[in-house]
Design a protein around this nucleic acid. Structure first.
Lengths: 152, 152
DNA sequence: TCTTGACTTGGAGTGCACTCCGGGTTGTTG
DNA sequence: CAACAACCCGGAGTGCACTCCAAGTCAAGA
């Protein structure tokens, strides 16, 4: 409780720490116009605000859900123009939301398959085996015929 | 029910259709050793088996959950050696499963944030507005002070 | 038989999202 | 004030996962 109250601005490194994003990447985002006009001190060094921290949080949410930089840039522009951009921001987010749902569904499907395989392998690891399969006959010399694949 | 029973092998295009993966990518997977020794006809053209279809299904599950090609290659090798590879396959899949769970958690967090924003925008689009925020003051001239960020 | 389109190869090219580099500046600490 | 880390910049480089290309071969229909 002593080195907080005067800390209004964050240096690049502090910002990197805070956001979990390399300082280089923050510079890159700035270049790309995702993060605009970061404040500078007298020596021309960047000083990030709490607003910047929050905004990078938003950016990371979008990135982690695989939004391309191009689209994030568009979103940033729409935020820049203020209220006028709200309808398109909404549209953009709704469409992105859809994609995220699809991603999650795909992830869950894959997860089911992975769990299934883990199951098979775990029981196969101690007892006899062969009733497994990777969608491929388990013989060393691949290319065999015959399939018992469940879902895959 | 007429052009199925004799179709034992799939041409590259048919395979691409079936798996939802470009034929080029299948060739790439083969080069990388993810898919080994695809059968050829007399004219040296690839003929994919039902096993191949199933195996590509597995590969896609791994890819869609962001497993790097390098690791998929390792997995393919472990399948190639048969039973001896099972323990490491298990290990690999378990560790991957963990990553998938983390991905899903991150996705869900981001989704919550996106939903929250959509909510704000939707209500803001008709009534007055300003109480929104993108983690940034909504004024046209960015760089303003003051924050009311909720989560973000 | 001719044509057309799917196939073969090795290798080069692409797009994305960073990530690093070199050479110079700033700011803090002993 | 010296030393050293953190900073600045434009631009080049990286790694990944494809994706395309050229030049030739194969297969099936008119």
């Amino acid at each position: 409780m002593s080195n907080e109250q005067t800390t209004e601005w964050l240096s690049p490194m502090q910002m990197a720490d805070r956001c979990g994003v390399p300082a280089e990447t923050l510079r890159y985002y700035e270049r790309e116009g995702l993060l605009d006009q970061v404040h500078r001190n007298d020596g021309n060094q960047r000083r990030y605000s709490a607003d910047d921290v929050a905004w990078v949080g938003v950016l990371r949410c979008l990135r982690v859900t695989a939004m391309p930089i191009r689209e994030m840039k568009r979103f940033a522009e729409l935020v820049r123009v203020g209220e006028a951009g709200v309808p398109e921001r909404l549209e953009l987010l709704r469409s992105h939301r859809q994609q995220v749902l699809e991603q999650r569904a795909a992830l869950d499907d894959a997860l089911a398959m992975i769990d299934h395989k883990i199951d098979i392998y775990s029981t196969a690891v101690a007892p006899v085996t062969d009733a497994d399969t990777d969608g491929v006959t388990t013989t060393p010399t691949l290319g065999g015929r015959g399939i018992r694949t469940s879902s895959a």
